[in-house]
Design a protein around this nucleic acid. Structure first.
Lengths: 215, 215, 215, 215
DNA sequence: GATGAATGAGCCTTCATTCAT
DNA sequence: AATGAATGAAGGCTCATTCAT
C-alpha cells in the first residue's frame, strides 16, 4: 500500500491496473455532479458541499473518501471531459482529407459537442482557465492540454508546408482558434439562447479566411 | 448608491458630486494593490488580506471601510482599468482613417497596452472572466463591457456596409478578436518571456485576413 | 463485556470461555499491526486507517468488527505486550536470590526486551502515557498496570526490611525506575543508534547505588 | 511584509523587534488557556475549539488570527513555560555552592514549581512528550530542550571531575533525573492529592545517593 | 468473515465584515 | 482616518463507526 492516504480510486486502480475510466459508480456520479456544479457556479465556488449535495451525498467526507483531495477530483473531471471530447471530435475530423476541411470539422465539432454537453465543456474551460502554478499534479496537467494543442499546431504547419495554408505563426493561430471556441463556451454558460452551432459555422468561416492561401 | 451602509466612497461622491475617478488617495492605492494581487494570484484568491498587505495597510478593515464590499472594489478596479485602456488605445485608433487600419490599431494597441501595464489587463480579464450572475451590481457592470463591445461591433458593421470588410457576423468576429487578445493577456501572466507585441502583429494580420473583402 | 453491541471478540470469548489471549488470527494480526503503527506515529495518530493498511486489510470496518472500539483494541495491545514482557523478564529475575540482583535483572531485562521488541515497548509506553480518565474500561486498566507496580514495590519493601536496601520511599523509587526505563524506550523510538543494553547497565548501576544500604 | 500569512504575533514582533514575551493581552490569554486545556485533556485532544472556549473566545478563528497555526501556539506555550521555569528554578540553584546541593536544589525546585504551577509543567511535558519529527519548527524546538539538558549534563561532568560525584554516564543520569521529575508531573495531573514536594525531597535523596562519591 | 460505501462529527484554516478605540 | 480585535460562516479533510451485501 501507499504511504499516506489511500483512496478508493487508488485502491481500485491498484487492483485493476486500469486508468481512471474504470470508475466505480459513485466516483462517476461525483464527477458528473462536479461537472454540473462547476458549470453552474464556477471553479472556485464549486465546493465539496455543493458537489455532494448535487450528487445526493449526505456529507463532503464521501468525496474525500473517493478522491484524494480537490485537485484529484478536478483532475478526474478534466480527464473525463477530454476523453469525451476526443471521442466526439476526432472521428469528425478524420473523415476529411484537406487541412481546411479538417480545421473546419475541428471547430464545428467542438461547438457541436458544446451543444450536446454544455456543462462538460464549461467545466473544463473553468478548470483549465483558473489553474495557477499551485499544485504540481495540476501543472503537469496543463502540460497535457498544451501537448494537445501542439499536435494541432503541427497540423497547421503541415498545411502551410503543403501550400494549402498561408503564412502565419501557427501557435498564435491555434491559440486564437482555441480562445474563440472557449469564449463561446463561456458565453453559452450564461446565455442558454445562444446558437452555438451557428457560432461554430461563423468561426469556421472566419478561420478559413484567416488561414487560406490567398488565391 | 448601494444598499447597506455609508462608505467613504459614498461620502466623497456625495460631497464632490463627481464620479469615482476622483478618488481619495487611499482608494486609488487600494485599487492599485488589488490590480497587482489579482494579476498575481487570480480573482478568487485575491483576498482582502493579501490586498491590504500589498497596499501596506495593516488591516483588511480599511478596505471594507473604503469600499462597500468586495464587489465594489472589483467594480472600481474594472472602472480604473477601462479608463486607462480607453485613454491608451482610443487615440491610437482615431489616428487612422480606414476601418482596416483602425482594427489593426485596436488590436496592436491593446497588446502594446499589455506590454506596458501587464497587471492591469490581467486583472480585468480575471475579473470579467469570473463574473457570475450573482450580484446585481456586477451584472449591470457586465452590461457596460458589453456596450463597449457593441460600439466596436458597430464599426465592423459600418466597414462591411462600406464594402471594406467582407461578410461575417460582426458579433462573432468581435468576440473572437476580444477572446484572442484576452488569451494573450492570460498567457502573459504566466509566461513573462512572451513577446506580446509580436503576438499583436500576428493577430492583427490574422484578423485582417479574416475581415478583408476578397480582392 | 461492554455496553453497546456484540463483537467478534465477545462471541469468541463466549464460545471458548477463554480470555483474550486465545485470539483469532485476525485479531492477533491487527494487534501486531497496531503495535507497529503506534510505535511509529504515536498513540493519537495511530488511526484505524493506518492500522488497517499495515495489517493488509482493505477497510477499517474490519477492525471495528473485531474490536469494540478503539479503546478495546488498545487494551488488547497493552495486554499482549504485558504478556510478552512478563514472559521475558520474569524468568530472568527469578534466577537471582538477592534483592539487588533481582532489581538489576529487572532493569536490564526490560532493556534487553526493548532491544528485541522495540515496537512492543514503544507501543505500551505510548498508550499508557496518553491515557486520560475518559473511558472507564481504560481506567480500570490503568489499575492493572498500577497493581503490577505494586508487586515490585512490595519487593523493594521486603529488601528494606531485610536490611539489604537503605531507607527510601519505595513508591517513589519504583516510579523513578519505571520512568527511567520508559524514557529509554521513548528515545529508542526516535534514535535507532541508541545502545539500549548499555543504558540498561548504567541504569542498573545507578539504582543499585540509590538503593543499597550504605556500607 | 512577509509572503503568505501574517499573524498578529508576527506583526507585533516586527514592530517591537522583541521576542514573544512581549505579548498582546489576548495572545497571553490564549496561551494560558492552552496550558490549562493541555494539562487537562492532553496534547492531542487540546483542540482550538476547547482552547477558544476556555479563553472566552467565540470562535477558533481568533486563535488562528493570533497564532500561525497549532504548532506556533504550542511553541509559544513551551517558550512561556520554559521562561517561567527558568526564572523559578535557576535562582534556587545558584544560591548553592556544592554540586550536590545544586543538584538537590534543581530537583526540589522543579517540584516546588510543579506545586505552584501544576498546569504549566503538565503542558510542557505533554507537548514535548508527544512531539514527532513532523514539523521542522517543532523539531528545532526539541533541540532547545536538548541543549538545556546538555548544560546540566556538563554540570554533572564537572562534579565528577571535581571528585564530588562518582563515576557514571552523565547523560543517562541526567535523563533519569528528568524522567523521574516528569513522571511526578504526569501523575500530579491525575492525582491532585499527590504530595509533590515530598516526592521532590525523596527524589533528591535518591539521586544524591546515586551520584555521591562513595565515602 | 470480509468488503467498500456511507455517515456525521470534529479538526484547523481562511474569509469578509464589523466595531470600539 | 486608521487600527487591531472579534465574529461567524464556509472551506477541505480525517476520523471511528455502521451497514448492506
Amino acid at each position: 500500500m501507499q504511504a499516506k492516504n489511500s483512496t478508493a480510486k487508488q485502491k481500485a486502480t491498484r487492483k485493476t491496473g486500469q486508468p481512471s475510466f474504470t470508475e466505480s459508480g459513485r466516483r462517476a456520479q461525483i464527477v458528473a455532479a462536479a461537472i454540473d456544479v462547476i458549470a453552474e457556479v464556477g471553479y472556485h465556488r464549486a465546493s465539496f458541499a455543493k458537489i455532494a449535495e448535487r450528487a445526493g451525498l449526505s456529507s463532503t467526507g464521501m468525496i474525500s473518501y473517493h478522491f484524494d483531495g480537490r485537485d484529484d477530483l478536478m483532475r478526474e473531471v478534466v480527464t473525463e471531459v477530454m476523453r469525451l471530447a476526443d471521442g466526439f471530435v476526432r472521428p469528425r475530423i478524420e473523415v476529411h482529407e484537406s487541412y481546411a476541411a479538417r480545421l473546419r470539422a475541428s471547430i464545428e465539432g467542438n461547438l457541436d459537442l458544446l451543444a450536446e454537453y454544455p456543462n462538460h465543456l464549461a467545466a473544463i474551460v473553468e478548470i483549465l482557465g483558473n489553474l495557477r502554478g499551485e499544485d504540481p499534479g495540476m501543472v503537469a496537467f496543463l502540460g497535457t492540454a498544451e501537448a494537445n494543442l501542439a499536435v494541432q499546431v503541427e497540423q497547421l504547419r503541415k498545411a502551410q508546408r503543403a501550400g494549402e495554408f498561408c503564412d502565419f505563426d501557427p501557435w498564435v493561430m491555434m491559440r486564437a482558434i482555441r480562445a474563440a471556441i472557449d469564449d463561446v463556451v463561456r458565453r453559452a454558460t450564461h446565455d442558454p439562447d445562444l446558437d452555438v452551432r451557428a457560432a461554430g459555422r461563423e468561426l469556421a468561416d472566419l478561420f478559413d479566411r484567416a488561414t487560406r492561401r490567398a488565391s
